[in-house]
Design a protein around this nucleic acid. Sequence first.
DNA 1: TTAACATATGAACATCTGTTCATATGTTAT
DNA 2: ATAACATATGAACAGATGTTCATATGTTAA
Lengths: 117, 117
Amino acid sequence: MRDEMQCDVIEVHPQKVEKIRNHMLGQDQYHQLSELFKMFGDPTRLKILSLLFQESLCVCDIAELLHMTHSAVSHQLSVLRQNRIIKFTRVGKNVVYSLDDAHIQMIYNAGLEHILE
Amino acid sequence: MRDEMQCDVIEVHPQKVEKIRNHMLGQDQYHQLSELFKMFGDPTRLKILSLLFQESLCVCDIAELLHMTHSAVSHQLSVLRQNRIIKFTRVGKNVVYSLDDAHIQMIYNAGLEHILE
DNA sequence: TTAACATATGAACATCTGTTCATATGTTAT
DNA sequence: ATAACATATGAACAGATGTTCATATGTTAA
């Protein structure tokens, strides 16, 4: 019934624990959720997102705004694309990136509210 | 005026870029924000948070619920504590952890809404 | 077609992250 | 004080992450 944990059954509050366990998400959902939040866990990607909240932009504009190489920006855009945070359309020589989903800005804003107290 | 970027001023849409630049946050704020989101970027920490949304818990209960070693849980709790996501109080032999701020659940829920479409 | 521009991508690299293991600290009951 | 329990912490390690560099792909204009 119990595993090799050190603390005693009496100490662990078993009914409390069982009740909480029933309300947990599935493993896969925690994983999905962490992958989503990882996208917000890097300053470069946050900057890119905050730019795209204002306006759709090409790689070149983003690189200029962030003072970064095109390559570094393109790699991050690729990550954001793969995680369906942003989408893109080709316009002539340029590839224009924009937000894929309104949820994204809500998550960003929820975090921003927190750090601004 | 411009740096060693490859693309031409005409291509970069300079007034568009300047307008957007004025609305950016400071470097430090992007960093703070990314540090905050990093806390949500790991399944173990998400699980711990989702437990604490329901109820304050001691390390032992959390380890039991997550089938993890006390040490691994304690390390993550330490990270969450240092980033002021959770707080703790000692109750006899136990240390009981709980949420530090209502914002935390809002951020989590915003993410959860997104992955649930 | 060729040259020039815009973006993408693979490999390499240094750094960061999360867990484990061993050990230390702190609390309570005896 | 001592033993047993609960938690914390440092070092070490494997795996993930972000940037750079070199190169490839794709588009447009000449």
